[in-house]
Design a protein around this nucleic acid. Structure first.
Lengths: 357, 357
DNA sequence: ATCTGGCACTCGCGGTAGTCGAGTGCCAAC
DNA sequence: GTTGGCACTCGACTACCGCGAGTGCCAGAT
């Protein structure tokens, strides 16, 4: 996990760690390179600034801090943040009052499953003053409860698939001329008879049976075509989890001084628009299931080099999994961000759990 | 419509109009204040730069152009753009090849009604190199086709409302302990018996009848509670058209030089996040139904002072209406933007029409 | 051995001054 | 009414300079 940081000399002594922590705490709030003088004054270190300078030099040699230029203060490196997150900082849980507020907001949409993840993103954004991101919980293997076919006008129908947990999928469907409502009903009856209660993969198998139906039987044709369309829809559904990635509060990130130039900002936006990286992340996070932090260049796409990501899965590993997280400058308030993400992912967990018990 | 522009002297003569047009054409592509010299060289005006200067001064007096400072070139005012849009420019239709590409893309999602408006926004963004915005077509008065109640676990159910054109609404629903599937079926049967085929308002009326049911009858209670929830959902549905406003390609707007400062940009983002203004616009656009252009300060919220909006409704006036549009700097390529919006709104019209015939 | 005070050095930042040139407005002549 | 000429304006760019925060190093104190 520590990705080859700290290759030289012995472990940092207590004092060096305290200084590192002070530097990062300070930089996170001020966004200004921090110097030895200020550290001594503000953090009650019981040594002189000269000593602190020596320690800073040491930390820099370790690759935990860096220097914008000779006569400037120190700035944490990605490795520095990494060490901070893993060993130095204390996670700050959300305050009781904030927890209450958030619970209340979720109470408002308790029954609107499709709103949960949006609210999660919004909540995370406003609680951390960064961008919040979230995806809906996607069932691992969709199971079909039932089909419905509803006519619209003369030549169209709406094909509805009811999945487990009451999730719905819907698509339009062109009808052959002269198809009656009775035909539709009969087609649905057969479709349900052979597919209801099965998984998508199973359904694919069972529908193959209809392929050999006599081509002149209108109802069989209808069933087959509906089945084909349903399968296509289910395949899309499988692929489309990241597609629904919802983000909120990007404005908060824009406000950070490091993004004033608007060029870096654009790159971040591009990364967010191109979901590929997130798709990849989600895959890896699922594996061991905990909250994860990705700092600056640890994110492989260059566009993400200046931001950090705190990401946590929620849901039931075997059944349905989604993600919530926070995205902000590498100079993120990690203790709060992590505490908040942990809280919200827990909340989402409870909501999903409720669906399965 | 011309909003009190041009209060002084007579109408602009041909030559002045040609110059105005040249200035705006030039400024739209270069984003740099344009001077008399350049106009003469690049636009083959058959007069000297001194003459052009006189004309420019005249146009400025009319309020159509302005001067960043004494020794700079001219920049169009909002009024100037307005005149340009209404009298000067030629609308540029989308090229045949682009039309084909777009049609093809829409063909891909022909049956996924809920994707249409997103694709519209994306298409508009990439075709105009600005931001594209779109809302789904919202039925004026939702009509209920049918209810469904599906149990999830022991204590939850999913309540589904099928609306006209196959639109779906879904919500969770907590069950009283011991409710059997048979109870659910019976409740749905009664619900459908009294409500199917009615409008939301009608349904509200009919459900009142259940209020006087004996409180100890489990099924009646179930029906009443389901009905209440359905009504709440329908009310939300009525309010939630702008809520689904989808935008794409904001990156394109970010790239414009006038937004390099990132401060103006933030304000635009804020305006987009706060949907109030759009809600208002949509109301007024519906009334007379054509494509409309809103230039700079013509948009009342200050945040929108630096951007223009090209907006067009689509759908069937009596039945379902949505919006598509383009948002960019006031220095928008109006001829192309308007042509593109017109094309896409036409396309969306056809799609919706297909649903109703 | 380690810490400390002192000191020379570095270098970005902010302000001032000077130059350049695109563009203007005006005017006298055509 | 149009044109060439001309003085003028003013932002953009460059160069320069002084300030000061911050560093690294060293010799002496603890």
């Amino acid at each position: 996990m520590t990705r080859g940081i700290r290759r030289s000399s012995g472990p940092l002594d207590q004092r060096a760690q305290a200084v590192l922590r002070a530097v990062i705490d300070e930089y996170i709030t001020s966004a200004v390179p921090v110097g030895s003088q200020l550290l001594v004054e503000r953090y009650r270190l019981q040594v002189s600034s000269a000593t602190v300078r020596a320690i800073l030099a040491e930390l820099e040699a370790e690759g935990l801090l860096s220097h914008p230029h000779t006569s400037a203060g120190r700035v944490p490196t990605d490795a520095g943040y990494r060490f901070y997150v893993e060993s130095l900082m204390g996670e700050v849980p959300l305050s009781a009052i904030e927890q209450l507020t958030i619970r209340h907001q979720f109470g408002q949409v308790e029954f609107a499953t499709d709103q949960w993840f949006r609210l999660a993103a919004t909540t995370l954004a406003s609680a951390t003053h960064s961008a919040g991101i979230a995806t809906p919980a996607k069932p691992r293997a969709a199971q079909i409860r039932r089909f419905e076919l509803i006519s619209i006008g003369d030549r169209m129908a709406s094909l509805i698939i009811v999945l487990n947990e009451g999730t719905l999928k819907q698509t339009l469907f062109a009808l052959a001329p002269g198809t009656s409502d009775a035909d539709l009903e009969e087609a649905v009856r057969r479709l349900n008879a052979s597919c209801a209660g099965r998984s998508a993969a199973d359904v694919a198998e069972h529908l193959r049976w209809f392929d050999h139906a006599p081509p002149d039987d209108a109802i069989f044709t209808l069933v087959r075509r509906a089945g084909d369309r349903a399968l296509r829809l289910l395949r899309e559904f499988d692929a489309a989890s990241v597609e629904q990635l919802f983000s909120d509060g990007l404005l908060n990130v824009m406000a950070a001084p490091e993004f004033a130039s608007s060029e870096k900002l654009r790159r971040v936006f591009e990364a967010l628009e191109n979901r590929a990286y997130f798709a990849e992340l989600f895959d890896t996070v699922t594996v061991d299931g905990g909250l994860r932090v990705y700092i600056g260049r640890e994110n492989r796409p260059d566009e993400m080099a200046d931001v950090s990501l705190v990401l946590a899965p929620y849901g039931r590993p075997g059944a349905a999994v989604g993600f919530v997280g926070v995205l902000g400058p590498t100079r993120l308030r990690y203790p709060q961000a992590i505490g908040t993400v942990r809280f919200v992912s827990g909340l989402m967990n409870d909501l999903v759990d409720h669906l399965y018990t």
